[in-house]
Design a protein around this nucleic acid. Structure first.
Lengths: 204, 204, 204, 204
DNA sequence: TATGAATGAGAGTTCATTCAT
DNA sequence: AATGAATGAACTCTCATTCAT
């Protein structure tokens, strides 16, 4: 059992370092050695635990999603009313814009998947699975499938991601032009459409 | 004179091949050699004409923008009425989503710039220059600076790009979920906000 | 422990091959790949053990100096009398002229340093360190600092090198004119000046 | 005849630039393009006039020797007495130490010849021819073959070069150790041996 | 004679991955 | 499970030289 514990500790340390190094250097440019070193391990330990870059990235993303879900659950725990809950959930998603490095990373992962068609389907499935796990019942209501909503899950999730990722890149690429003030002006009305009212309104 | 022609032909051939190879392999993965070979030239010829990947990419982008502008001009040639013209221009931009490979490419270029901070400012400037040439007269009216608009240029251009790039990635990453029908449903209301009415409405 | 042995073996093999390839091709023209191949290793192994050409050259030089020192020590083991000892030490140094390839190599290394000013000071320091190790005790008396001598170390060492290197080049460049007989006639009186008596005489 | 003049001007300009660029960058590192550009010409012009680097270097050296000979002739024009003349000639040669860049260049050329055995004999012959032209009668007496001298020409010339080149390298490689004061102390007694008295003395 | 675009062989260097220990 | 030395494929960029004009 000690072995298992040690293995788990190594895996966890590697994933934690991977998050840091990936965010710093990007998916393509991140070096396995840097991840291993940052975790106080060696390249050999890395390969004993993961098949390669893609695998550790998927593992990392799975954890990130769990974290996100927990955060939203906690946030909504004592909030009543569908509208209030939706607003909170939306705000929390939008807060991700602050962490533009993570958004960038997620984007790079999708690009990686797109550029490697033989893995794409599997990677996309993993992504969606993380976003819509089997234990759907445990999801806060706002993440659930809702027939009356303009965009049901997982489409809404992907759309929000597309929005955030696109603007994160714009903000990092042209901070002189796309500063925080501009983002604060543009994103909310766009997001509100994806969350329902505008889209419904525009249909009517 | 012949020399000049030869140079121009080589440059043109290299740029044409660059567009193809970049679209196929992505910005990072594209190899100079593949571009040169595809153009029927050698690596040496490439380096005689361009400083490196970034430079040929900017050259390619400049041409792409020119092409886009010409198309919009032609499209609007006989259309009267500000609203109708704006709608057409917006539609044409949105049609770019069909060419998701190009959008992907543009996105990768921005990521490259973000990951190479020492070049970023220069590359961003090149991008904006290509988008807003000095000869403002040549721009169709719909692309021009408009103080009363909710998003003046070049902000509007960057925002549109952010939107298109974000959804292009989503569509290529999860075509099963983000199919053309869904995009056709989501994008127009989002774009209309960037083009004015919605944003103005949401302010009042 | 085995790992360390393996590393040492690889380093030793690479240094041995470096000596051979450098002598054959010269410092500038020597290819890392040739050194690695000759040692039965790969370029990657080379870079895992050395930073580059300059580093392996300094490592090689350190070993060469150690070898030279051991030889002189052995040579002088049973010789009495300061003058006799000095004469033997001088003769041994002059015998290096036979190994003109090594002298040439040393010369090329200095030229390399001169042509790369940013490395020069460091390389020169490495050279002097190799020539005058901290453990001064290990040096035969004749190589030690001697205040009464006309040229104290490390000046005498550098001057001897200058002499040998200069004539090694002449001999290799114009063997028809600078044959062994001529060298045997010219070098001893020149060297004796650097070793003391003549210079002292010329001062009085 | 105009053609010939223009050709001569181009050749001269290229050789002048070659001297400059070679001295700055060294023989191996000097780029044909830099030489051509510095002369306000193109690579094509270079190849129209010279076969390659080696040829222009030989041409340059021939000119340098002619210059040196003229200088010595002028210097000795009104000096009487063999001893005084010899002293002056020696001093002038030793003054070359000031121009250590040129000495370095000469050294590099010899190394080049040594590393290219197929050209070596020819290059060495060119070097000696320049040093001892057919019109020997025109040489100042001090450069002529003298049976009673310890080192007859061209041996003495090569030996002086060896000395100067060796110490030029030492001075540039380790200026901290081999400064001008040290050189001024070491070189004269060494040179005087090559110029006769010492060597003769040491024989007796 | 001169131009300068193009060639193409190569060099140095990096790193994901393997594998003997 | 972990080590870390070694592999080897790739990639960018340089430059002497050629050649059509």
């Amino acid at each position: 059992m000690r072995q298992t514990e040690r293995t788990q500790a190594t895996r966890a340390a590697l994933i934690a370092s991977a998050e840091k190094i990936f965010a710093r250097d990007g998916f393509e440019a991140a070096r396995i050695e840097d991840i291993a070193m940052d975790a106080g391990r060696t390249r050999g330990a890395f390969y004993a635990n993961f098949e390669g870059k893609a695998e550790i990235f998927i593992a990392l993303k799975r954890i990130t999603f769990q974290r996100l879900r927990s955060e939203v659950s906690a946030l909504l725990a004592n909030v009543e009313g569908k509208e209030a809950r939706e607003r909170l959930a939306a705000l929390h998603l939008l807060e991700q814009l602050q962490d533009s490095k993570s958004l960038l990373l997620q984007l790079e992962f999708k690009l990686f998947a797109i550029r490697h068609p033989e893995m794409r389907a599997e990677l996309a499935k993993g992504h969606l699975d993380a976003m819509m796990p089997d234990e759907m019942e445990e999801l806060p209501e706002e993440f659930r499938f809702d027939e009356s909503a303009p965009l049901e899950q997982p489409r809404r999730g992907l759309a929000i991601e597309a929005l955030l990722e696109g603007f994160a890149v714009a903000a990092l690429f042209s901070p002189e032009v796309m500063d925080r003030g501009v983002l604060a002006q543009i994103i909310p009305p766009l997001a509100s459409i994806l969350f329902g009212d505008r889209l419904r309104a525009s249909r009517s």
